Simulated assay, not measured.
Amino acid sequence: MGSLEPNLRQNIKGEEHKDLTLDFITHVPIAFERRKKRLLIASAIYRFYRFSAKFLSQRFLLGIALECEFILRRICLEITNSELEGRDLRLEKKREFILKNISNVGRVIDLGCACGTDTVWLHKITGRKTIGIDHNLELINTAKSRYNKKDLEFFCLDALQFMKEDQRILEQNDLVFLSHIVEHIDYPSIMLTELSEYFKYSYVEVPDYLDSDPLAQAKLQLGSRLLYSDDDHTFEYSRISIRGLLLDCGWRIVDSEFYGGVSRFWCKSERKSR
């Protein structure tokens, strides 16, 4: 590795970082010059902080900074998701994890399918009937207009409502796919327990917010109002608490991964009788 360092320092500078591939930066550290180009806005904000620290408490300033960090992060994520193109390494890792475990799975229900991106991919790799469920009618209509395939269906229903009204359909499927759904549910233990009665397998993905965010502990100590990663979340889970929830609800964890700010689990039901 040491022999690479001179070339890295010669070739990886400033604007050239934008041309780096995801594969490259995954395996090779990025080198920087000792003296960095000054960022005017960042420098001005830091100077303002240093000046304010003479009159205001560090605790008060930290509270303001955490609130600013929350809204700026949300803006950055929204712009990133809507504007930036190219490879998505997080999505690739997610699909690698699923492919490693899905070989014995038949039909799938994707609860909280949004516009159907994961649903269509699951249908493609399993070759079996796949159903997408979401409570947002606009997203369901988008999915229906984009994807018109045999053995691929989309329904606009609340997840718990669907479970109560369509138990016959539930019994015909092997995998329930829950990607960023559990943290939005008011009573996740009830839902996960009921799902363990019908499905042989589950895929569960939630934000790894409390463990991967270095500022989460500071927010806990300050009693911050913004101790969540999304306005619609009813729960935020640590790696220990999400594991505990799954086990308590009748799911045995077969495989798990923590990457890119998310926790993902492949589970097998301990309750399903058939």
Rank of each mutant, 00 (worst) to 15 (best):
T21E: 01
S196F: 02
L22R: 09
R73Y: 14
R225S: 14
E67N: 11
E96Y: 05
K150W: 07
H123W: 12
E171D: 14
K200G: 05
K164M: 07
D118R: 09
L210E: 07
F258L: 06
E92S: 06
G116M: 12
E194R: 01
I125P: 01
R9D: 01
D232I: 00
R50C: 10
N11W: 10
P29C: 11
L139Q: 14
K268C: 05
L178M: 14
R252N: 12
Q217G: 04
L170S: 07
L61G: 03
T21G: 11
L99T: 10
S229D: 09
L89M: 10
G86Y: 02
A31C: 11
L245T: 10
T130G: 04
T117I: 15
D110C: 13
I133Q: 01
W266G: 00
R9V: 08
L22P: 08
L215S: 10
N148S: 14
N173D: 01
E15Q: 04
N104R: 15
L62P: 06
G112V: 14
I12S: 08
S189C: 07
L195F: 10
P6H: 02
L4K: 13
T193H: 07
L139R: 15
S52E: 13
I190C: 04
G106N: 15
A31H: 05
W266P: 01
I190G: 00
I185W: 00
K36A: 13
L152W: 09
G86P: 03
D230K: 05
H233T: 11
I169M: 04
V108D: 04
A42M: 10
S57Y: 10
F265H: 04
I45Y: 06
G116I: 08
R90M: 09
W251L: 00
R271F: 03
E16K: 15
L192C: 05
L61F: 02
H27S: 10
E85I: 05
S52M: 14
T21N: 08
N101P: 09
K144I: 12
D232A: 13
F265R: 03
R225N: 13
D213P: 00
R239W: 00
I169Q: 06
E33R: 11
Y187K: 11
V108M: 03
D248I: 03
S82P: 00
L220K: 10
K36L: 13
L137I: 12
E83Y: 05
T117K: 11
I71H: 11
Y147Q: 11
L111N: 01
L227Y: 02
Q58E: 15
K149A: 11
